[in-house]
């Protein structure tokens, strides 16, 4: 159960895993941006090849990737059909009953679906190959300039990492309490909706009480261990842009260059 909760991170030591999380976030950000510039077969191909190559390099088992994509199949199919119906460009592809389908609709539908697919693929690749704590570190580092305007970057990052750390603990706790209340005759699974909503109270109250107690004890433990806020702290976790990151940046820039070279300018 625990392994499921901690995001879909798949441990590994591939090139993609070893990239600096900031590199991954930056590239994904720009990838999402440039996807919208692709407008013909070669330009889309460049992006698809880049994305699929990254997936292969990550050595994440295919079933994890597919599992990550399941929620969007519906969205992809829906937008595809929508485009089929509303885009009235190009020639009539075929007509059926009194609907006319245009080639333009098919092309648009396919293009939008590919975009969706690419976006989801690269972002899920980030969470599949990067631990939540690495993402937190990257965000802390990338937000650092905001320190100047007194934005509490360190506190935010610490809050995020502690929340992540306590998710499995609280999940276990939820299971324990729901078992205890079920033993006292609470029925979480059947009965009218109203009763089931009421059944949540004996679960939530103890969970909150325990979460507060944990927070209090944790705060005390942190204080006892010398925590006084972000100032004057050193860090064990270190982010380093290495040779690998530089290579990826260069490859990615080439991909963008090829994309802009091959796309059609109307």
């Amino acid at each position: 159960m625990n392994s499921l909760i901690i995001g879909q991170y798949v441990p590994g030591d591939s090139y993609v895993h070893r990239l600096d999380p900031r590199t991954k976030i930056t590239i994904i950000f720009f990838f999402i941006f440039v996807v919208f510039f692709a407008n013909n077969v070669p330009s889309y191909s460049v992006l698809v090849i880049f994305a699929l190559a990254s997936v292969m390099l990550s050595r994440v088992p295919l079933r994890f990737i597919i599992k990550g994509l399941t929620p969007i199949w519906f969205l992809v199919i829906f937008t595809f059909i929508l485009h089929l119906f509303v885009t009235k460009e190009g020639e009539v592809f075929f007509d059926f009953w009194h609907f006319e389908f245009y080639t333009g609709g098919v092309v648009q539908g396919v293009a939008i679906s590919i975009r969706f697919f690419l976006l989801i693929l690269v972002t899920s690749l980030l969470t599949l190959t990067t631990t939540p704590i690495e993402i937190t570190d990257a965000i802390e580092d990338m937000l650092r300039p905001l320190n100047k305007v007194k934005f509490p970057v360190h506190e935010l990052a610490l809050m995020m990492s502690i929340s992540l750390r306590f998710i499995p603990t609280l999940m276990q706790e939820t299971e324990k309490i729901s078992k205890a209340q079920a033993s006292r005759g609470v029925d979480f699974k059947t009965g009218p909706v109203k009763d089931r909503i009421k059944a949540v109270v004996p679960l939530l109250v103890p969970l909150f009480v325990s979460a507060f107690k944990r927070a209090e004890e944790l705060a005390m433990a942190m204080e006892a261990r010398g925590y006084q806020g972000g100032e004057g702290r050193s860090k064990l976790r270190e982010l380093k842009i290495g040779k690998l990151d530089m290579i990826i940046y260069i490859i990615f820039l080439s991909v963008i260059a090829v994309l802009f070279y091959t796309r059609t300018y109307a």
Binding site: E173, K176, I177, K179, A180, S183, P206, V209
Partner: peptide, 13 residues
């Protein structure tokens, strides 16, 4: 079948 779980005080609400 009555069950007294570990740390049963955690079930009070």
């Amino acid at each position: 079948v009555g069950v007294v779980f570990q740390y049963p005080e955690h079930q009070l609400f």
